[in-house]
Nucleic acid binder design. Structure first.
Ligand SMILES: [Mn+2]
Ligand SMILES: [Mn+2]
Ligand SMILES: [Mn+2]
Ligand SMILES: [Mn+2]
Lengths: 217, 217
DNA sequence: ATATATTTTTAGACAAGACTAAAAATTATT
DNA sequence: AATAATTTTTAGTCTTGTCTAAAAATATAT
């Protein structure tokens, strides 16, 4: 069994490992968890004793199979709870993350199985992120940043890169939600801004926005 | 804001105060929380600093208004989660308590309001215990122990005194659930055992059982 | 290759929450 | 009222998880 703090470290290392296949540095973990490098070193030793990470001094950490499975299970819970909050309790997608950060630590295998069934075994959370299965496997769909689309290409909005409340509320305001089809009408080279067609409406999109929206072609 | 540990102390004192209107003793709290009296003294001082209890050395504690409200809110969350687990996730009434012990500490006013609405504003939990309202008030119905019923009296089963998993499973096995009508057919003086009529069936009930079932006449 | 900058680890401290053992206060008994 | 038993508090220790400051290792620049 893992403490709340251990679980948060595992989850952080898991996320960092997904897009960086070398060992995860002490500093990277510290930054994500908003803590100090020395605290990370301490915790890494504990996790290493519990055999969820492999740790070589000054060389960073990697998750063991047990570590990966444990972390994936926490992510699974986080994302299932997010779906529950949006689908059943009328939360909007910008309100769910902080509550899910708490709910992901509830320990009850039956609870999460029942929530999963109650929701009809969803595959993705409200932000388009995949929900790991019970064994910790997650199938990623291929998706591209909107900024990589060329003029006249179109696709469906399937995820966000930045899931801050501010960004999500901004998308709401513009009428951009997951599942919507869009087409690139115009692409400005000098600032990377786009003109897109969505719901039959023309919309101006800054480069910053285009770099944080995932599209499935 | 209160820590998990502080919340558990508050809840314990709240429950103890409900059936003992003197100051709650250090030992009583220690017993309920399965901890040591010295630990309780330490915590009581912290709670006193936070003005949720009034503490006089050697004289026990009482909750302040703020303390009562805070405690009632935790109990509210506990019981609403229990209803949710039974009504929506197919938990049986003997499986919900331990999970609710975790869920009651989730901090999100919106979450609990939405759960309340989602459940149709229930007034009682699966064990027949009343759910405090948002201001911390709880209306208690008058109920009597089955053991206090006289021969030929009848009533409706409305609650349990012992809510251990063992007792609840025992009741399930005997077909005794909340809402059922029953009548005392026979009452043995020497061992306090009863013969009751429930669902048209005659059933033998030991004194121990009769002392843990609440009936509304 | 040496010096400099950065990252990581160690050493030592602190707060929260628990424990044991001993002291002090209260309650019960003779 | 004095003594004994019980309850409560205090003093000191421990673990978890955090921090700062200093030392050690690694990476970068000259
Ligand atoms: Mn999230
Ligand atoms: Mn998400
Ligand atoms: Mn309960
Ligand atoms: Mn209950």
């Amino acid at each position: 069994m893992f403490t709340l703090s251990e679980e948060n470290y595992l989850k952080t290392i898991y996320h960092l490992e997904l897009d960086a296949d070398k060992g995860i540095s002490t500093n990277a973990i510290a930054k994500k968890l908003e803590t100090k490098a020395s605290s990370v070193t301490d915790m890494i030793k504990k996790l290493s004793d519990k055999e969820v990470v492999v740790y070589k001094k000054y060389k960073g950490v990697t998750l063991t199979e047990l570590g990966k499975k444990t972390a994936a299970n926490i992510v699974r819970k986080h994302r299932l709870w997010e779906v529950f909050l949006v689908e059943k309790l009328n939360f909007s997608w910008d309100e769910v993350h902080d509550v899910a950060e708490q709910l992901e630590h509830i320990k009850s295998p039956k609870l999460i199985d029942q929530i999963d069934a109650f929701l009809g075994f969803p595959t993705h959370d409200p932000h388009g992120d995949p929900i790991p299965d019970k064994d910790g496997n997650l199938k990623t769909i291929e998706k591209s940043l909107l900024s990589t689309l060329l003029k006249n290409e179109s696709g469906i909005c399937v995820g966000v890169n930045d899931s801050s409340s501010e960004f999500l509320k901004f998308l709401d305001k513009k009428g951009i939600t997951l599942g919507k089809q869009l087409t690139v009408l115009e692409k400005e080279d000098f600032d990377g801004s786009l003109s897109i067609l969505i719901d039959g409406e023309k919309l101006s999109i800054s480069n910053k926005i285009a770099n944080n929206l995932y599209i499935q072609k």
